[in-house]
């Protein structure tokens, strides 16, 4: 749970209460993992070969599992602190992980824009996973030191999985970039499609700044150097050029999404919206 001394509180703007920042911060981590997990799961049964179909589905499962841990914790924080959290169909009971995933709308989702982009071809899916895993690995490495013991525990658990995701996606970027003429061309196209969304990874939102100041969250600006180093090395080995265009697309962390997220939520949330509070 959150333990904050008075001296630490003085540095935080009054309107950004620590609990609110913790909730938004944890939701941001949960939403990002859930949406990428959902995107990856679209490949299940459609992978290029059986082994890779299984690999991308495994990664989807890991990400959705991580999202569950973050959502469970968010729900616990909301319930324990009796935070007013408005959700449709939820009255007279505690909020659950499912409510947070299924009953929040586009504007309330805080995931990175990168992860909601359509899968495109296998090369695009691979490149997106690589960009993300390289970032998530560095993020979890720092989050393990969080003053919030549950966030630290989730990071400690998840980084082992992310290590495999990063290794797998790096190898595929190299294989496709340094592969056939067509695979190389597709990776160039993937870079063109996704590079613009990578800037947001290192651009902190207000709640990330508060969380970092409280030492419960990670200062994402500090991750950029190591991320660029990893990306540069892998792209070089893949014989792909490091993009020089600015990566300016952002907004996902504060609920300004591309048109694609609504379609994901429409599919993912259909059942709970059509049959509220239905259960297995």
């Amino acid at each position: 749970m959150i333990e904050i001394s008075n001296s630490e509180l003085q540095d935080v703007p009054v309107q950004k209460l620590p609990v609110e920042a913790l909730i938004n911060y944890t939701l941001n981590l949960a939403d990002t993992s859930l949406i990428l997990g959902h995107r990856n799961s679209e490949w299940t049964g459609h992978g290029p070969v059986l082994e890779q179909d299984i690999a991308i589905s495994n990664i989807a499962l890991d990400l959705i599992g991580q999202a569950r841990n973050f959502y469970q914790y968010t729900a616990e924080v909301i319930n324990k602190n009796q935070v007013a959290f408005d959700l449709p169909y939820v009255t007279g009971r505690a909020i659950t992980e499912d409510d947070l995933a299924y009953l929040r709308d586009v504007l309330e989702f805080k995931n990175l824009l990168l992860v909601e982009q359509p899968n495109g071809d296998w090369g695009q899916t691979i490149l997106r996973q690589f960009f993300f895993s390289a970032y998530q690995y560095l993020l979890y490495e720092q989050l393990q030191k969080s003053k919030d013991s549950q966030l630290a525990a989730i990071a400690e658990k998840s980084i082992k999985e992310t290590t495999y995701h990063l290794r797998w996606s790096s190898e595929w970027v190299i294989r496709l970039g340094d592969g056939t003429e067509e695979s190389h061309q597709r990776m160039l196209n993937a870079l063109q499609e996704f590079w613009m969304f990578t800037g947001e990874l290192f651009k902190p939102s207000a709640y990330e700044q508060v969380a970092a100041a409280m030492q419960i969250g990670v200062d994402v600006t500090t991750l950029k150097g190591a991320w660029m180093e990893k990306v540069t090395a892998v792209l070089e080995e893949a014989k792909l050029p490091l993009p020089t265009t600015p990566a300016l697309q952002s907004g996902g962390k504060t609920g300004t999404h591309s048109e694609h997220l609504g379609f994901i939520l429409a599919e993912m949330q259909f059942l709970q919206r059509a049959y509220p509070n239905s259960n297995w």
């Binding site: 082994e51 495999y164 290794r167 797998w168």
Partner: peptide, 13 residues
């Protein structure tokens, strides 16, 4: 190694 990911999360092929 055929694949780093197998029939369940904990296995490789």
């Amino acid at each position: 190694l055929l694949s780093e990911f197998g029939s369940t999360s904990c296995k490789a092929l």
